[in-house]
């Protein structure tokens, strides 16, 4: 899922301070699960904005709404009336949600209320970790299901770097060395011989460097 964090209240207030009526729009999917932009967070952030704006003498009305998914037209339509009666939208969706709303309501300012952080998983209650960098050409099958692109600080495809200490990363001692994890995992599944192969330079053309990526499925187009 996509993991995000809320922006601080002073920053949010600065973003919306030019407007009198703002819709705080939550999303019921990924950002609900990572406790950043779901119905509950919409309530908290809206209350906080009302309090902060009154303390600063601003005339700000905040409306709350959460839709099931901000990146899907069917659900976005459900917010049409609320978006129409407000001056601006503070979206608590991920970056995709914010842009999806902005593209469909062209006369409304749409602002991001969250910092979209990464694609990851819930590691334990209250802790999320990054697992995928969406690099566009997955190499997980070569590395025992542990991603060196995301989890090695140096993104080494032929590791380890030599700087790891015990099983800790040289760059960030609070995280395990990805290459130690890869070695252990490959050993467990009897595929250590994969490490004898030198990985060629990765094709980064499919990553973010070439601008926006588009996937087209001709067989599904109508």
């Amino acid at each position: 899922m996509i993991v995000a964090e809320r922006k601080k209240i002073p920053e949010l207030l600065n973003i919306v301070r030019a407007h009198k009526k703002v819709l705080v729009l939550g999303c019921g999917t990924c950002v609900t699960v990572c406790l950043a932009g779901g119905e509950r967070e919409v309530g908290i952030i809206s209350s906080a904005l009302r309090i902060a704006s009154r303390l600063q003498g601003l005339d700000l009305t905040v409306e709350e709404l959460t839709i099931e998914r901000q990146c899907d037209n069917v659900f976005i339509e459900q917010a049409a009336d609320a978006i129409e009666r407000n001056d601006a939208v503070l979206s608590l969706g991920c970056g995709a949600g914010v842009q999806a709303i902005a593209e469909r309501y062209r006369n409304k300012p749409v602002y991001a209320g969250l910092d979209t952080t990464f694609i990851g998983i819930l590691e334990e209650q209250g802790v999320w970790t990054e697992k995928c960098a969406a690099c566009g050409s997955c190499v997980l099958h070569e590395y025992g299901g542990i991603c060196p692109v995301t989890r090695c600080a140096k993104r080494m495809l032929n590791g380890p770097c030599g700087g790891s200490c015990e099983d800790r990363c040289e760059v960030r001692p609070d995280v395990p060395c990805a290459w130690q994890l890869i070695y252990t995992r490959l050993k467990e599944i009897g595929q250590l011989d994969r490490l004898r192969k030198i990985a060629p330079p990765k094709n980064w053309n499919r990553s973010l460097d070439g601008g926006q990526r588009i996937v087209v499925r001709q067989d599904h187009r109508i």
Binding site: K8, I9, I44, A48, I51, A52, L55, Q56
Partner: peptide
């Protein structure tokens, strides 16, 4: 912490 962010 959030109260401080809000200015209360």
């Amino acid at each position: 912490q959030m109260l401080e962010e809000m200015g209360l």
